[in-house]
């Protein structure tokens, strides 16, 4: 393998509180839409940034349908990114040089909570509990589903897990450890036990009863805390010496909000970068 100075992002995918697809996420963010709402459902006691609707069965080809929520949603984002990168199927000759780096802070929270629920109800643990709950629960099925036999790494760095995974993947590509890496992160912590734990830490935002979608106010003197959410930003990076340089972008995994308070210069740069890619209509923040 050769050493690469430049790393480019060749495909993107996302499943977020704004809907399915990286384009949906980007357009929603630029339009100032918030994915935050009352949870669970109307009249819920919490505010959260849940993925709207039921994304449905992910149907990983090589796996049982029994996977944790964050893994199932990660699979959707991976498929979008792989298709975007023109890598719907990886040739056998490239399999060993194609890796998976994946970040998650909490990991398989639903699986763990279900397991403890069974324990306290006097029931048996499900057979695959360990495999579904380990921090590499997403990496392994992504690699299996797409036949990727290159380097694999699970990264857990709290809310920066996905960003840290992207950084590690960039270093790995520069160092020649792989030619392509599927990289990103996933969380699905919207569970009563998880929210109670965050609440006990006294860091959750107070619900804005008039406008629940505005409960999270980063960079605002009226901010009261974070809002838990689900997010699966993903990109396929390649070490190929393609023209142009793209800096890895990351989305906050555990605090989700729109970007009305984004500095105008940053907004303009994002607008410029996105217009060519998705041709999304966007407006400047007030």
């Amino acid at each position: 393998m050769t050493l690469h100075d430049r790393v480019v992002i060749t495909g993107l995918g996302a499943v977020s509180a704004l809907g399915l697809g990286a384009g949906t996420l980007f357009a929603g963010a630029l339009a100032g839409r918030s994915g935050i709402r009352l949870w669970p459902g109307e009249g819920g006691a919490w505010t959260a940034a849940a993925v709207p609707g039921d994304p449905g069965s992910v149907g990983m080809q090589q796996l049982s349908a029994q996977v944790d929520r964050h893994v199932g949603l990660a699979a959707l984002a991976v498929r979008e990114a792989m298709a975007d990168a023109g890598l719907a199927s990886i040739p056998a000759a490239q399999s060993a040089t194609t890796g998976v780096y994946w970040g998650t802070g909490v990991g398989s929270a639903a699986t763990v909570e279900d397991s403890y629920g069974r324990l306290h109800a006097g029931q048996r643990a499900r057979p695959l509990t360990i495999l579904l709950a380990m921090q590499n629960a997403a990496v392994a099925p992504i690699a299996l589903d797409h036949g990727l036999r290159g380097p694999q790494l699970s990264v857990s760095q709290a809310c920066a897990s996905a960003a840290a995974a992207i950084g590690e993947a960039m270093l790995a590509l520069r160092g020649g450890r792989a030619e392509r890496i599927v990289v990103g992160g996933s969380e699905a912590p919207l569970l009563a036990g998880q929210l109670q734990a965050w609440d006990a830490l006294r860091v959750l935002a107070r619900t804005d009863t008039l406008s629940p979608e505005q409960s999270c106010r980063p960079f605002d003197r009226r901010r009261s805390g974070l809002v838990s959410g689900k997010a699966r930003p993903l990109s396929c990076s390649s070490g190929k010496a393609l023209p142009g340089v793209a800096a890895p972008a990351s989305m906050p995994n555990c605090a989700a909000t729109a970007t009305p308070a984004m500095p105008a210069t940053m907004h303009a740069r994002i607008r410029q970068a996105s217009s060519a890619r998705w041709n999304v209509p966007c407006r400047m923040a007030a």
Binding site: L63, S64, A65
Partner: peptide, 12 residues
């Protein structure tokens, strides 16, 4: 479409 790990869950 049920693999060996899936069979464990199926039996359970």
């Amino acid at each position: 479409g049920i693999d060996s790990l899936g069979l464990l869950e199926f039996i359970f």
